[in-house]
Simulated scan of single mutants.
Amino acid sequence: MNLPNTLTLLRFFFIPLYLFLYFSEIPGRIYWAFGVLLLAGLTDVIDGYLARRNKQVTQLGIMLDPLADKLMMLAVFLSLLISQRISLWAALAIFARDLGMIFGSAFFHFRGKKTVPANLLGKLTTFLFYVALFLLFFDYPNAENFLWFVIALSFVTFFIYLFQFKMLNQRTM
């Protein structure tokens, strides 16, 4: 088990910690929960950087890294839905996209298909989701409108990944 994979596994433990803090009665709970979310995002950046720099990219990491990211985001958006900070429609759009990506990635991975690495647009979308989350957590006006913009961009990104996936796997057949 290398350090990047250990950091990825650590992100799975951040999910229940985030949920505990978000729904707790601890003073400043929103700040603490958002801090855990940011820490999860930071470990995602660090583990990817270390894996590439130290040539420690593994099949386990390729599979678990996006799963940890998607499960964390699903937990965060579920908590925002439960606390009525986002609409049911926004949550459903996010859940549909993320669950589709989780199950689609697993389906193709276990069939030996090559996966498409994150691209610049995907990284920008992730960053903008964090901006949207900040706005939502701290009740900024028009936060959900900004979230809808990011959701739309995430679907564009998703379809670009599908196209890249198809092209990559057609060449290798």
Rank of each mutant, 00 (worst) to 15 (best):
M167F: 08
G35C: 07
L78W: 15
A132C: 09
N2P: 04
N169R: 07
N169D: 11
L9S: 10
S79C: 12
K123Y: 07
L124N: 02
S154W: 02
K166A: 14
Q164L: 14
V116H: 00
I30S: 09
D69A: 12
E25P: 05
R171F: 08
G41I: 04
I82R: 12
T126N: 05
W148V: 08
L135W: 13
L38G: 11
R111S: 06
A91C: 13
I151C: 07
L136V: 11
V156C: 06
P16M: 04
F14E: 08
F108N: 07
P66S: 06
D44I: 06
F163R: 12
V57F: 07
R171Y: 12
R171G: 14
L124H: 02
Y18M: 07
L64T: 04
M73P: 05
K114H: 09
N119V: 08
F108Y: 15
F103L: 15
F108P: 00
F138K: 02
F129C: 03
L153A: 11
L7V: 03
F138H: 04
A132R: 04
Y22D: 06
M101E: 14
F138R: 01
R85D: 09
V156A: 10
M101A: 15
R52H: 10
T157V: 12
F165D: 00
L39A: 13
L17I: 15
L37I: 10
A96G: 07
F138T: 03
A51L: 05
F137L: 02
K123R: 13
L121N: 01
F12Y: 04
W32H: 10
Q56A: 08
A96Q: 07
F95S: 12
L3S: 08
R29A: 12
M167P: 00
F127T: 10
V156S: 05
L74Q: 08
N2I: 07
D65Q: 04
K166Y: 15
L19F: 07
I46L: 13
